[in-house]
């Protein structure tokens, strides 16, 4: 897909995710919006051998959404790709639905790992990357981690092991949107520079505007050997919806019908302007 088409796609994904959250009456719009662009590039350009008709295909690339609360963005893409019917999106978070409040790999086709308990995805991703190498597949493994999520200890244990095992088939993408639940990262637990930290751990670090398509593509395309890659994606929480951007209160709140209409209108305009 060309960049213009990817951008159009991202508007559709954003609208779909917001509608889903509105319909569910709860969910996490802010952190869903910030990852739409990286997910769009991944699913419509980057990931190899992914097949809705065969979601468990062994040689596929893997995508672990460790910040699992952003799954409305992922579900919107998986439905668009045909992993399950688009109509099913309106069952998000409802009883009996395959679309759980947080990613559940045994319920939802196309979901590569469970999420919800923050900080666990990177370890699963290290295992996937290790396994792919050991079994002789050239699958790439991607893991999207929240900046607040990196306050957990486990990701740093995973980081050490990723470098130790020279996992050059592993890419961490840090959704560095600067916010979490109780305020900004700096207010809650200042993490300093992720670039410096991951470089010190031995990753190949690429710092980008994580809502910029040229930069995302260049970062994904950059070849690295002998070590894992870490893309520090500086993003805007709530990206694409004016009243949500950089607003901590939109971490976990459902929209009213009125605000949803306003958001959809804005996204339609952005799409039309492309």
């Amino acid at each position: 897909m060309e960049i213009r088409e990817l951008k159009k796609k991202s508007c559709e994904i954003r609208k779909s995710a917001l509608k889903m959250i509105r319909h569910a009456g709860s969910g996490h719009p802010g952190g869903s919006m910030s990852v739409v662009d990286m997910l769009t590039v991944l699913y419509y350009r980057q990931l190899k051998n992914i097949d809705p008709a065969d979601p468990h295909r062994i040689d596929r690339d893997r995508m672990v959404l460790s910040k699992g609360h952003a799954n409305p963005a992922l579900y919107a893409i998986l439905a668009d790709k045909g992993y399950f019917p688009v109509e099913e999106l309106s069952t998000l978070r409802q009883i009996g639905s395959r679309l759980q409040g947080h990613p559940d790999r045994s319920k939802t086709p196309g979901v590569d790992a469970c999420g919800g308990s923050l900080g666990q995805g990177p370890s699963v991703a290290v295992g996937l990357a290790l396994g792919a190498k050991a079994a002789g597949y050239d699958s790439q493994v991607y893991v999207i981690v929240g900046d607040g999520e990196l306050e957990e200890g486990q990701p740093w244990e995973a980081a050490m092991s990723a470098v130790q095992f020279k996992l050059d088939n592993l890419t961490w993408i840090i959704d560095n949107n600067g916010l979490q639940i109780m305020g900004s990262n700096d207010e809650v637990m200042g993490s300093g520079s992720f670039e410096d930290k991951f470089r010190a751990f031995g990753f190949e670090v690429i710092s980008i505007d994580g809502n910029d398509y040229e930069q995302l593509i260049a970062a994904f395309d950059k070849k690295v050997s002998g070590k894992p890659k870490c893309i520090v994606a500086h993003t805007i929480k709530g990206k694409g919806v004016s009243f949500m951007e950089n607003e901590v209160k939109w971490h976990g709140a459902a929209l009213t019908d009125e605000l949803l209409d306003q958001a959809l209108k804005e996204l339609d305009e952005q799409e039309a302007a492309l």
Partner: peptide
């Protein structure tokens, strides 16, 4: 806990 699901 409700809509957040089994992980929570």
């Amino acid at each position: 806990g409700g809509p957040d699901g089994g992980s929570h």
